[in-house]
């Protein structure tokens, strides 16, 4: 599960952002909607432990992120939080399989090739196992990025604008994939977006209002 309490963040001491409290239960699927400047990417980074809050706390799977040291936080993030970005990025020198294996070993988990193969199979990209990331189409890259976020069976999956660059057909497909895969792992899914097309698809929604 994923929750926040009195979360505040300050940029350069003058732009202060404060966020509504969130409480997402295990296995729930949430949408975080907001216009540009509403601080939704900041919130996503706070939730993922990529930034540290000035005030308040983030609870992931029962652990307070504030209580962790920088190193423990890195470790925790690798093991419990899967993040998908708007544009899929990879370690270019490694193959698809190695990128996923790296995600496992950086999270201090044993490399499980069966898990990697099964995930890619589920996402229909296992034929690209030995390909370099730049040999993949945009759609394939997005799928592999989803696979990478899922590979360590995280409790929470965060997706940052996963559909904003896609047409309607692909948009539907990616959302479906995310929901499916999250359900498969029984993980909490939170999609951060300003993409209006997703509004009707999610029961749980948080709306961020512009704060600047």
């Amino acid at each position: 599960m994923l929750a926040t309490k009195n979360l505040k963040y300050t940029y350069n001491d003058d732009v202060a952002l404060s966020f509504p409290d969130i409480e997402c239960q295990k296995g729930e699927r949430w949408l975080l909607l907001g216009q540009s400047g509403s601080g939704k990417t900041t919130l996503l980074h706070l939730l993922g432990g990529l930034r540290t809050a000035k005030d308040g706390d983030v609870i992931v799977n029962g652990t307070s992120l504030k209580s962790l040291t920088q190193e423990a936080l890195d470790q925790f993030r690798g093991q419990h939080i899967g993040i998908i970005f708007q544009k899929a990025h990879f370690i270019k020198a490694l193959t698809v399989e190695e990128n996923l294996a790296l995600a496992q070993s950086l999270a201090d988990k044993p490399i499980d090739r069966n898990r990697i193969k099964a995930l890619l199979d589920r996402l229909n990209v296992s034929h690209k196992l030995k390909s370099k990331p730049d040999q993949l189409s945009i759609g394939e890259q997005q799928r592999v990025a989803i696979a990478r976020a899922l590979v360590n069976k995280p409790a929470v999956i965060l997706a940052d604008e996963p559909t904003s660059a896609l047409d309607d057909v692909n948009c539907d497909e990616v959302v479906q994939l995310l929901e499916q895969q999250a359900a498969e792992e029984n993980a909490t899914l939170l999609i951060v977006t300003h993409d209006g097309r997703l509004k009707e698809k999610f029961e749980h929604q948080i709306i961020l209002n512009p704060q600047v």
Partner: peptide, 9 residues
């Protein structure tokens, strides 16, 4: 990205 995946500094 490596940091996101759990790599320490």
């Amino acid at each position: 990205l490596m940091r996101v995946m759990g790599a320490t500094k």
